[in-house]
Design a binder for these strands. Structure first.
Lengths: 340, 340
DNA sequence: TTGTATGCGTTATCAG
DNA sequence: CTGATAACGCATACAA
């Protein structure tokens, strides 16, 4: 089927392209009769505006790009759902890219999005991202940017995140109140801010409760394979510390679930012998045995909010309204289950 | 930062836009010296072609659209990863849409993609989709379309799927060989083809092994909340049949996991008292207790293959090569664990 | 109320 | 080897 253009409608009706264009957009300076004529024919011919032409002319694509580290991930899937919902409301489409926790890819993808002419960009940084030139480039180009969850403190743009430090602090404090004293931490990579903050929250909770911080209880998990990392480090933990450890605070649920699987296999009782606390509250955590206590991170809401802010900044930019960057903290909650 | 155009480069160099354009594309009829000059300046000015103009001119967007029923879903996430990987190789971007198992939304989203001018479309149909006019519209417009996993038999386009009937047959046969005789089926909605096929595979396995098919053992789960559906129907199943049921073949893992959770709660032993078999092999299934036997559906591969076919059809269309629609069956495998 | 002219940034044809 | 010109489809300032 041929796609129809304004020109064709104009010709068939003996009108000018201008009039047709205006008629379809309900300009006040077109007669009712003409409007009707035009609209009817447009309908009949299944006219749809050519989006490339519109974008070229209007300098906007009604498209936003989003880069996340990994797709197969409960939290990020939820975020995307939130973004999708907001975008749909405002008639925006989203282009999805996955950085695979690679800085190189992330950088390349930023370029792709810029070249594509997206109206705005949403990013959750890869764990490996230290150099931030690609983000600065986005800003220099005047493209609205919102960072969410895995952010870079020094970049001057809006951010949507949680208070990782506080959430970690609360989780670890809870473990302490339950009587645990030798609490290990399965932390993430050394680089990402939220990995750092969760570690700091863990440490502060210990100190505030007069428990000595023991760095030998901290295990770095950055092999990009959280389940097995959790499993293996659980083994290592027991080997290293034997009975001298009674809980684990893991930087994410998958790590904790890996550990639980190790303990189940070795008949090490959870939570009696060793308690666990996760982070992110994956659905999975509610159905395993024992169910895992975790921190609800409200991915959907984070996605919604991020998109809202981005869309608003796009709007402001177009209208020439000054943009005030925001930093939104999404609340977290402890979700207590049977693992502690 | 201002975005630079061919015109600007041309002006600064005292050349024509044409020459600049050609130089950047390494046309043979431009002198080496000019090419160098142009390329250097283009580099310096961070020139990137305006994608809207290119799309308008070339009538292609280097973009494909994908519609899936739900985002937060292990299988579909995997599919998307596969699609993303293939698309990236060929320099295509993907626009993601979620139908939320709603026919209305799916239809609307098809329109959006058409209007957006994507070069091709990938769809896994919603459970509610019966009317197929929107798919026909895509085809009528000459836009390459590939259906995957949840397909419509009667639509004339390429398809990538599994042999649902065979996979179900194998799973149920396995249960029978294990000695189970009263095997319930938690099936999906009545409409989707793969729900039907899995049911038929289940039924055929029973009949082929001389086990009477008992329709009261079939439970329809279509509340769009699989975990709870599984949980609730497990309760119902026990209420209805008491000891007179010894296994469940569920149309997907989440349903089976819901049932397992019910059984765990009620201290009904799995697999001793009742065995379970799932479908799709979600990661979750390997970490729950007891771990769930399931059918590996190779989502990543399905995504890769679907994208390959689509991209190829796009290529053929552009080159005027006749397109031969394909129907690819991706192999499945029984993954045996502790639930049976 | 309608139409003319112009430009958005490319690419392609064809002439010089 | 280079460039003028047209065209892709639309939107808008301005003229009639």
């Amino acid at each position: 089927m041929k796609t129809t253009t304004l020109k064709e409608i104009a010709e068939q009706l003996g009108l000018s392209v201008t009039t047709v264009s205006k008629a379809l957009k309900d300009y006040p300076d077109v007669s009712k009769k003409t409007k009707e004529l035009v609209k009817n024919l447009a309908d009949k011919l299944n006219y749809v505006p050519n989006s490339f032409a519109v974008s070229l002319r209007m300098k906007e694509s009604k498209t936003i790009g989003i880069i996340i580290p990994t797709m197969v991930h409960y939290f990020f899937s939820k975020v995307i759902e939130g973004v999708l919902k907001e975008a749909e409301k405002k008639n925006y489409m989203i282009i999805l890219l996955q950085s695979n926790e690679s800085y190189e890819l992330e950088k390349k993808q930023v370029d792709l999005l810029i070249n594509k002419g997206v109206d705005g960009i949403l990013i959750s940084l890869s764990n490996k991202t230290k150099d931030l030139e690609h983000l600065k480039k986005i800003i220099k180009r005047g493209i609205p940017l919102v960072l969410f969850d895995k952010i870079a403190k020094t970049i001057n743009c809006s951010k949507v995140l949680i208070d990782d430090r506080k959430a970690a602090y609360e989780a670890v404090s809870f473990l302490i109140q339950k009587g645990h004293k030798r609490i290990a931490h399965f932390r993430g990579d050394l680089n990402p801010q939220n990995s750092i903050d969760r570690f700091l929250g863990y440490k502060k909770a210990l100190i505030d409760h007069n428990i000595e911080f023991d760095s030998s209880l901290v295990y770095i998990c950055n092999n990009n394979d959280d389940f097995n990392d959790g499993f293996n480090n659980a083994e290592k933990l027991i080997k290293d510390h034997g009975k001298n450890v009674d809980a684990i605070f893991a930087v994410n649920d998958l790590l904790a679930i890996g550990a639980i699987n190790y303990f189940n296999k070795k008949k090490i009782k959870v939570p009696e012998r060793i308690a666990l606390f996760g982070f992110s509250n994956w659905f999975m955590s509610s159905v395993i045995t024992p169910s895992l206590s975790s921190i609800e991170q409200h991915g959907f809401k984070m996605g919604e909010k991020s998109a809202q802010i981005l869309l608003n900044e796009i709007y402001c930019k177009q209208k020439g309204i000054k943009i005030e960057h925001q930093k939104i903290i999404i609340d977290t909650e402890l979700v207590l289950r049977n693992s502690c």
